[in-house]
Amino acid sequence: MIDYAIKKSAQLFITVFGVVTLVFFTLRLIPGDAASAMAGDTISGEALDLMREQMGLNEPLMSQYFGYLRDLVMLDLGQTITTRLPIAEMIGNAIPVTLSIALLTILLTVVISIPLGTVAAYMAHKGRTRLDNLLTGFAMLVDLMPSFWTALVFLLLFSLTLGWFPASGMVTLDDPAMFLSRIALPVLVLSVTQIATMARITRTSVLEILSEDYVRTARAMGWSEFRVLFRHALKNAALPIATVIGLSFGNLLNGTVIVEFIFTIPGIGNLLINGINSRDYQLVQTLIVFYALLFVSINFITDLVYRALDPRVSF
């Protein structure tokens, strides 16, 4: 276990370092440079030079790179180029919003998808294939709905037609009721897809375990099917399912970008899209590194937790 954690941490470090380096140099590879890309046709000549100077673009590439690394380590994320706002503060404000959406989605997903998938697996195991096929087909369909489209359909139905949720309004944590009502629809949109995914995965894992020999042993000892399903099958399926929940975080991050954009919610996703549209490379670069870091760390933690919980992995 310790061996494994050491090895994995080393890998993680290399990956993160690679991400930072890749992002930095790729941005410098753009034809022209960040300043001229930003300036477009409006600024030229001396003004552009001044801008380059301010952005530190006139320094040698390697010293820019090391400077960037030093700033990252010191958590000095600098300012946005366009609005001159401190990036660290912007991200700090946006994170709670995005994480609230993500965590609520995971909660809703787990509560609904695991019982659903377990029941579906049970039906498949008993050979009730028609009902099972219908459910799995439906789950696949829902799973594949593009989230921006689902978001629009939900917006049309629940907000514009039925008026259950506000389509706009301030999003701040200071007003929890308003906050919840504003993020309810985004959470719902993301959950629909996640529930479909997780229910399918739960079904597959549980179904596989139901045909294991030890399930038959439990039945032979006189335990009811219901008890065997929830004591043995689900307990054994729990580890792979937990891992998938961790890994599905990436999809969730993809999804938050879209729903934040559609429902105009000030999370990191929206920050990113705005950054790209306003060609604010400093901001985009920082956000992309941030996303990668978040994603990789969650995968790392998931992996370690899995290994810590599985009695078969020795310490």
């Binding site: 990956t15 993160v16 991400v19 991050l253 990668a292 994603f295």
Partner: peptide
Amino acid sequence: VDIFLAFPSLL
């Protein structure tokens, strides 16, 4: 590969 897989795909 690990570096590329560090990003969620859409991002």
